[in-house]
């Protein structure tokens, strides 16, 4: 840690008013925690009192004043995750890592913490490892998640819109899984569909990271032309419940769980997609 480096980070933000949280986030991204010296430099350079900076740094749970491990595992214990067994997941992590919540393993690899809500209640119990979301976690997955964390994942630097989480979808007609574990996109199993355009059919692979636009298309389709989506197992067409807000084409609805649909625009090249947590047709 060097004071010049921190001064440089602060000076990138200091022009803007009300940028304390942004400054602290930048410092924490660099050092994984907020060193005491850094807070003093931030206070001096922004012309704020140290008590105010310290107050902000201790108010938000996202900031840590203690050194953190290389990887951060957060288990959600919000209401929705709690009733689905988040506490048992947290206990499993604690016994496997042999540390308590808020502590770091002695080798400095993993910091484990519990959080009160990650805002992904429909996916609960949710675990986040370095910005990557694991939905519907069970106790048996805990060991694998720790191994994933130790293997290292692309660190989420907190850039706007970069918070991606994987989803698991099935065919709404036959309920068979659409996940293709052999063809991976963004490091996760892809979503396999069959699309048809102009009388020809081809395979389509979509990234299962919600928000990612990565895809593989075997069929040549002109840009902005809507295709038809079919299930690769039962060959039924995917239902349409709404139209894309971006281009107006029909959205193909894929089944996540009762009442939850992942809707994706059928138009080639259109980024339109949405997670519908209240889709009455998804029974």
């Amino acid at each position: 840690m060097s004071s010049e480096e921190i001064e440089k980070i602060v000076s990138d933000y200091v022009e803007r008013q009300g940028s304390i949280i942004a400054v602290l986030e930048a410092v924490q991204n660099r050092y994984r925690y907020l060193p005491e010296e850094a807070l003093r430099i931030v206070a001096r350079q922004t012309g704020r009192r140290l008590v105010d900076i310290y107050g902000v740094a201790t108010f938000y749970k996202a900031f840590s004043l203690k050194p953190r491990g290389k990887h951060l595992i957060s288990v959600c214990l919000g209401t929705a995750c709690h009733v689905r067994g988040g506490q048992a997941i947290a206990e499993e992590f604690m016994s496997q890592l042999q540390i308590k919540a808020g502590e770091t393993t002695p080798d400095g690899e993993i910091t484990f913490e519990t959080v009160n809500c990650l805002g992904a209640c429909a996916l609960g119990p949710t675990v986040v490892v370095d910005g990557h979301y694991y939905p519907h976690v069970t106790r048996s997955q805990v060991g694998g998640i720790i191994a994933d964390a130790l293997a290292g994942m692309e660190r989420d630097d907190g850039a706007a819109g970069a918070r991606l989480f994987p989803i698991h979808v099935s065919c709404p007609n036959c309920k068979r899984s659409l996940m293709d574990y052999d063809r991976r996109l963004d490091g996760h199993p892809s979503i396999a569909c069959v699309i048809a355009y102009d009388g020809r059919k081809g395979r389509l692979g979509l990234s299962s990271l919600y928000g990612s636009r990565a895809s593989e298309v075997e069929l040549e389709v002109p840009m902005n032309e809507p295709c038809r989506f079919y299930c690769p197992h039962c060959h039924e067409e995917m239902p349409h419940y709404s139209n894309c807000v971006e281009c107006g084409s029909p959205m193909a609805a894929l089944y996540i769980r009762r009442g939850c649909a992942y809707e994706v625009c059928t138009s080639r090249g259109c980024p339109g997609h949405l997670l519908n947590l209240d889709q009455p047709n998804m029974k």
Binding site: E36, R49, L50, V51, G55
Partner: peptide, 25 residues
């Protein structure tokens, strides 16, 4: 002076100097 302030929040909210050491100010 601004030597003392609130730290933390909710149940953990407390009063005192930053880092619990005597403040320079």
């Amino acid at each position: 002076a601004g030597a003392i302030g609130f730290r933390g929040r909710g149940r953990g909210r407390s009063l005192g100097t930053p880092f619990d050491v005597q403040s320079e100010v």
